[in-house]
Simulated scan of single mutants.
Amino acid sequence: MRFSGKTVVITGAASGIGKESVRLFAGEGAQVYAADIDEEGGAALSGEIDGDVRFVRCNVRATGEIKELMDRAAAETGGIDTVFNNAGAGGARPGIHEIEPGEWDRTMDLLLRSVAFGIRYAVPHMRGRSGASFVNTSSVAAVGPGYAPTAYSVAKAGVLHLTKVAAADLAQFGIRVNAVQPGFINTSIFTSALEIEGEMERVAKDMIAQMSANAQPVRRGGQPRDIAEAVAYLASDAASFVTGQSIIVDGGITLGPRHSWDPEEAGLLSALEAIKEQSA
């Protein structure tokens, strides 16, 4: 019961990583304010999850709604201990040579601006609370190209830098700020970005899970619980000496090129080197 008596706000809480985080925090004693624009999914949370879960409809692209969320959580419980700025989606898909200004702005609003103002409007309710902390969702896409669309990747890199400068800003109040960088996690973010629904969504998720299991050293697909566990650690007293940092939870996909961890690929390279030597 690491979070007994704590007030935790989680955005993007109706599905995927957010939902599993609600389950974990509520299961360990927290009063969880689960925020999302998905009213149907959000309303079902309290019936599916044991613990004190209170759904609040919140569009994180509207800063006024973020402020209302934080003010409500604090007014009803006396303050806020942890905010998990998690809400997001795939964002605009075009490359930098094709993207339109409105597409860029919507992606930045959803993935980066929302995190900034999630911090801004929660801080007044967190000052003076022992162990107060933020956890922000970044991505392995912040590491470099090839993991996600351009606008998404830039926004997630921005979240990493925001995490560092916010940690510096808020150290004076004893508030920690950290981030988590998920790899390929089996959630609806991929199918939603491609507008895949119904039975085909299940098929697509199975395909994504299989592909990701073969794309990284840890031979299984990433699950929302993998991220929720990292978030809970960063929010807990066990991480009281950790701030301005990020944990990559990706099954090792960012370790390096495939031949560095796949013996079959390494064997192929060795064979090619042998052929090269013979032809020299």
Results as ranks from 00 to 15, higher is better:
P124L: 13
P124C: 10
P124R: 15
M126V: 04
M126I: 11
M126K: 10
M126F: 05
R127K: 15
R127S: 14
G128Y: 11
G128F: 07
G128E: 03
R129K: 13
R129V: 05
R129P: 02
R129A: 10
S130T: 12
S130N: 12
S130E: 15
G131L: 00
G131F: 01
A132G: 10
A132C: 09
A132M: 00
S133L: 12
S133F: 11
V135G: 07
N136T: 04
N136L: 03
N136Y: 02
N136A: 00
T137C: 12
S138K: 04
S139N: 08
S139A: 12
V140A: 08
A141Q: 06
V143C: 09
G144F: 04
P145K: 04
G146C: 10
Y147H: 15
A148N: 12
P149V: 12
P149R: 12
P149F: 14
A151M: 05
A151Q: 01
Y152Q: 06
S153C: 01
S153A: 15
S153H: 01
V154E: 06
A155T: 05
K156I: 08
K156V: 00
K156A: 06
V159H: 00
V159K: 02
L160D: 09
H161G: 06
H161P: 07
L162A: 02
T163R: 08
T163I: 08
T163F: 00
T163S: 03
K164R: 15
K164W: 09
A166W: 05
A166M: 11
A167G: 11
A168T: 14
D169Y: 13
L170F: 15
L170T: 10
L170N: 09
L170Y: 15
A171R: 14
Q172N: 12
Q172L: 13
F173S: 10
F173P: 06
G174Y: 05
I175W: 08
R176I: 10
V177I: 08
A179T: 07
A179N: 03
A179G: 08
V180W: 08
Q181D: 05
P182Q: 06
G183R: 03
G183I: 07
F184D: 13
I185N: 06
N186D: 13
I189S: 05
F190A: 14
T191E: 13
S192N: 15
A193E: 08
L194H: 14
E195V: 10
E195P: 11
I196V: 15
E197S: 13
